[in-house]
Design a protein around this nucleic acid. Sequence first.
DNA 1: ACACTATTTATAAATATTACAATGTAAGAA
DNA 2: TTCTTACATTGTAATATTTATAAATAGTGT
Lengths: 147, 147
Amino acid sequence: MSEVRINEAIDTLKQSGVRITPQRHAILEHLIQSMTHPTADEIYKSLEGKFPNMSVATVYNNLRVFKEVGLVKELTYGDASSRFDCVTTEHYHIICEGCGKIVDFHYPGLDEVEALAESVTGFDVGHHRMEIYGTCPDCRSNKTKIS
Amino acid sequence: MSEVRINEAIDTLKQSGVRITPQRHAILEHLIQSMTHPTADEIYKSLEGKFPNMSVATVYNNLRVFKEVGLVKELTYGDASSRFDCVTTEHYHIICEGCGKIVDFHYPGLDEVEALAESVTGFDVGHHRMEIYGTCPDCRSNKTKIS
DNA sequence: ACACTATTTATAAATATTACAATGTAAGAA
DNA sequence: TTCTTACATTGTAATATTTATAAATAGTGT
């Protein structure tokens, strides 16, 4: 279960010399257990019960720490809030333009494209980002009902 | 030259029933001629000379109009300013993590990935976004000099 | 136990973008 | 042409996300 994954994550943190505070544990737990890709504010709000006087800054700080260690990826969306994704296996995201839902889907990894880009542009390639946009089944059926 | 492309873009706008104001013409011209992918603020600043009392809001408004017509794509980067890219041929971007430079590079288009995502998730796929991150030749040579 | 460092908190600040009301401008009808 | 109406622009205020900072707190090692 997610127990295992939390412990793995904590080990990773310890190995990087990051202290495990109660707040960090809770944020990590929330990230791993929630199947959504929460925003910083969603995490903050969902932990208000357990930590009535936790600060939003703490959430942001620790998400940055997790990012630096490589446990978490930030998905940026312009003016809107970033969403945070606990990195486990290699996967991409498909995003519903109707309701904003984000669904994971697996794909081999676009190594070819990286290689080509590298040779064409002379860059040293580090990583890439890919997202697919569309309409999820729920939103599609809602649309057809209306029309 | 870019003359042609500007006229094509203006035709597209006219066909969509969008008025061609001096400001719109200038923003469009700047987008097409500049090989960079400017931010709204960069466009605003670069047109201050010609239009001393143009408002930033005008730039944002018209970029939205251009986006709706499909002439322009917005590249969002979290908290940082969005950049705007005049859509011409199908291409992707490689972005330098050192200096922020964005370089275009052409690639066949990831139709396969879209198809797979569609069948796996049940979404109706509309479009996708892909970006590659790395270090550009300039930044790489700067780094080696220092070390 | 003590000194030192990392972390959290609370608040203020920075920044990008949007909303809104007022003014200006262009296109069509009379 | 002149009136009317709809669209554009301007200027400013508001919103929202994220970061910076300083003070308070907790944890670690000697």
